[in-house]
Design a protein around this nucleic acid. Structure first.
Lengths: 326, 326
DNA sequence: GTGAAAGCGCTAACAT
DNA sequence: ATGTTAGCGCTTTCAC
């Protein structure tokens, strides 16, 4: 009987007796339908599968995005492939290719390539692609990102308001779009406040805690050190915190970090951060993919998830008195 | 020409000219072979896909396991489906079923069901299943776990050596195998030291930071409070830390936590922990799956990944002097 | 070196 | 209410 298919898929027009028989057989054989085989012939051609590419699955920001995507997917019976980008363009292309060969229904991507135009044919084919954390280049598609420039400006404004004029920027490699945006927000806010940015320390290319730590130590060993630091990323903040501790100056030098850190509230001083909302980013990205799959053909949209400043102490340290360079 | 298959799969006996032509066509059509279609007919029937079930993808321990599995899988062109268990038996069964319907080549599982005997037919069918973090029940298969009892004993011994006799245990729900093992290690070590465990506080059923915080506050509000705490899990440690801070007693009460916490070294005092090695657990689990897929038919093995005590301050606090209950 | 035929496990479109 | 035929995109087998 090939009416089996009807029973398995819960289609109508099958007698109760047959349903029972089929189910009994399925039970004893421990039958699990092969979704891929079904898919090959099924009209909609859906694999009920999603590809998710994040910075690294071993990273709190990515974990939160991933979890939100999973929750949205689970509700629809969709499974998700997760891969780590490691800010490596080759990995990006290989991960995307692996997703495509597995015929995922949609893609949620964090990218590092200069251009994602290699996705154009796939987009034309109708596969929804939503970019998270970083916006696409060379291609138009949905994206869900934090307002990086505005968040950086927020952090910078906070330091300015507490009297700092000599603020350092410590950031990730400029190939990373969010790093560029955060630097821009930092510099523009200083400009708006009439602070000359020419000889402020802007240190880039920091990709992990150790490089940030070393850079911070060097920064405070050099002449004319800053009174405050804006660190543009999670791991960089970590390195800065370690370095300031080593120097015994963590209660003198102000610090605001981009992106929250677990336990940041329990440090002394607590670390003031501009927090992103990765959970929201993941949720909205998944919703967009599913909306597209459900036939939404509205123009590609850029969704901006707000950041918020969390004051915990480190960002409210005042510069040394009597020597305000204002 | 159906010789296309030969070119795509790099098989021999095709002329250079044909190869070039096929590749050109593939390029312009932006062709990506459908692995699932191929699979349907292919002799080995491999989907080059793995199912990974962890506590929650949004969790540092799971993230590290996941990353290690991904790295091992990537090297073999295998993609991984990741799902979150949330310590929910229903979720477990549904996740496994979703993996199976997608014909994953192997399973790496963290479980909460009382018995995983529902996997017996799949095991008989030859699908490799490796249990991580928690050992299987009702079934025999490979597992890769920390030595939970020994780790807990290590933590307890450390507190005993620093003079504590009145030590509290704060732990997760006993349905969780690792929670039971850690409690056992704790009690047995006290027993070995000749400490009566009868009226020591053993608080269980703590599943998040907030419940642990509340329990800790209550513990120190009650008569005869402990001089030291062993917290058997990540989130529980967090709650204990918060509570001790609120009470202003974080420099008086000793604390050793099971499982490391990010930034634990920068707190004051630093948090002494028994650290697991999730990266290693993930790596070994993936290796076992692939060894099984490569034909290893040796008996199911239980691999124990050692834990290690990291002294950072909180675990080295001495009990109030002069009142040693010894 | 190339291709034609059959079939993997399922569902679509039609019978009956 | 049930069955039949064809075909999804590929690989296998075997023929040329």
């Amino acid at each position: 009987m090939k009416t089996v298919s009807r029973v398995i898929n819960g289609e109508p027009n099958v007698s109760a007796a047959t349903i029972a028989k089929v189910n009994a057989a399925a039970r004893t054989l421990d039958y699990q339908p092969d979704v891929h085989a079904g898919n090959l012939r099924r009209a909609d051609g859906r694999t009920r599968t999603l590809g998710l590419l994040v910075g690294s699955v071993d990273n709190p920001f990515a974990g939160a995005v991933h979890r939100a995507v999973e929750d949205a997917a689970l509700a629809r019976g969709v499974a998700v492939f997760a891969s780590s980008l490691d800010d490596d363009p080759t990995r990006e292309q290989e991960a995307v290719s692996a997703f495509l060969r597995r015929r995922v229904d949609g893609l949620i991507l964090t990218t590092v390539t200069e251009s994602q135009d290699y996705l154009a044919p796939e987009l034309r084919r109708g596969t929804p692609v939503v970019f998270v954390d970083r916006e696409p280049a060379g291609i138009t598609s949905d994206s869900v990102v934090s307002d990086n420039a505005e968040g950086a400006a927020l952090a910078t404004r906070h330091l300015l308001e507490h009297g700092h004029r000599r603020v350092a920027y410590l950031g990730d490699r400029p190939v990373i779009q969010t790093a560029r945006e955060r630097r821009r927000g930092f510099l523009e806010e200083l400009g708006r406040a009439g602070v000359a940015t020419r000889d402020l320390p802007v240190i880039e290319g920091l990709h992990d805690a150790e490089s940030a730590r070393t850079a911070t130590l060097a920064l405070f060993d050099a002449p004319n050190p800053p009174t405050a630091v804006f660190s543009s990323q999670n791991l960089v903040s970590l390195g800065v915190i370690h370095a300031l501790r080593e120097l015994g100056r963590h209660r003198e030098i102000a610090l605001v970090g981009f992106d929250d850190l677990p336990l940041a509230d329990l440090l002394d001083p607590g670390i003031t951060v501009v927090a992103q909302d990765p959970q929201q980013i993941g949720r909205i990205a998944a919703e967009r993919v599913f909306a597209r799959l459900d036939g939404d053909t509205s123009p590609a949209a850029r969704t901006i998830v707000p950041t918020r400043l969390i004051e915990r102490g480190s960002g409210e340290i005042a510069p040394p008195t009597g020597r305000l360079i204002a």
